[in-house]
């Protein structure tokens, strides 16, 4: 917070703090999935053979495709952040939209994959599944829960990234608000706009007692490529979340598709 002549700027976004908060949140996500991985580890140990057979029924091709899609989306996400770092807003938004599209593609694939399983009568509590060995019931129980929970995270990620993209695209103006610390300071004061060297560009009339509060609105001309610090923090945090979703899939893929 900087203060000049009794006027303080209420501008306290803490970039490092925002990022720290996001990392802490990611830890909670890891623990959330961690609980499921524990269950997986236990049941895989106790029913190794059943897991082996059940895994054979998953479509490795779709799984591989989805892995490639998510890995690519992580790349585009990183490129979007890199573009933002060098202040290329349009490029950044394009990569962001690409990331969103890949996320949606992933979910569409998942939809058809799940749909096929349901068509074959393989879903939790289905008659067909209940006739199978216990380990296979557990395998599919875990498969649907874990990929379902992961899919939910992909969905949330897509929503978050879309909000960020829209927020970034719709920001032609930049507002900064100032306000005085105490009204006594305003009496007889002048409001002035100075440049870096301290030269006065503009000044108001001296203020009298009738002035209770001063609010200043600075309006920039719409510069399309203008990027704010907040955009970067938000985008980077959204990116961190997206990478987490990707990393969890990287573990889910071999554990469900490749153990056969």
């Amino acid at each position: 917070m900087s203060a000049t002549n009794g006027l303080a700027v209420g501008h306290q976004r803490d970039y490092a703090g925002a990022k720290l908060g996001m990392w802490v949140f990611l830890f909670t996500e890891l623990m959330l999935f961690g609980g499921m991985f524990i269950l997986y580890a236990v049941y895989r140990t106790t029913h190794a053979d059943d897991f082996h057979y059940a895994a054979g029924e998953l479509d490795t091709l779709v799984g591989t495709m989805n892995t490639l899609i998510l890995l690519t989306s992580s790349l585009t996400m990183a490129l979007s952040i890199a573009a933002m770092r060098t202040a290329r807003k349009t490029v950044s938004i394009v990569f962001l939209v690409l990331t969103i599209a890949l996320g949606i593609w992933f979910m569409v694939n998942k939809y058809f994959e799940w749909g096929a399983k349901f068509e074959h009568g393989l879903y939790p509590n289905s008659e067909l599944l209940l006739q199978r060995a216990k380990g296979e019931i557990l395998f599919f129980g875990l498969y649907f829960t874990m990929t379902g929970l992961h899919g939910l995270h992909v969905f949330i990620g897509v929503v978050v990234l879309s909000v960020v993209a829209i927020k970034m695209a719709n920001r032609p103006y930049d507002h900064i608000a100032f306000a005085g610390e105490g009204r006594d300071d305003l009496r007889g004061a002048r409001l002035a706009l100075l440049d870096d060297s301290g030269r006065r560009l503009w000044a108001s009339e001296p203020m009298d007692d009738s002035v209770k509060e001063v609010s200043v609105r600075v309006k920039y001309l719409p510069v399309p490529r203008r990027i704010r610090r907040e955009d970067f923090a938000v985008l980077e945090n959204a990116g961190l979340y997206w990478h987490l979703v990707d990393i969890i899939w990287i573990f889910l893929f071999p554990l469900f598709y490749l153990i056969t």
């Binding site: 959330l32 609980g35 049941y43 879903y123 509590n125 019931i137 649907f144």
Partner: peptide, 20 residues
Amino acid sequence: PIIGINLLLIIAERLFGIGV
């Protein structure tokens, strides 16, 4: 988060019968 996932599993167990 551990109890979170645990309770979600109870809900999934009751609604869908996942069996874990």
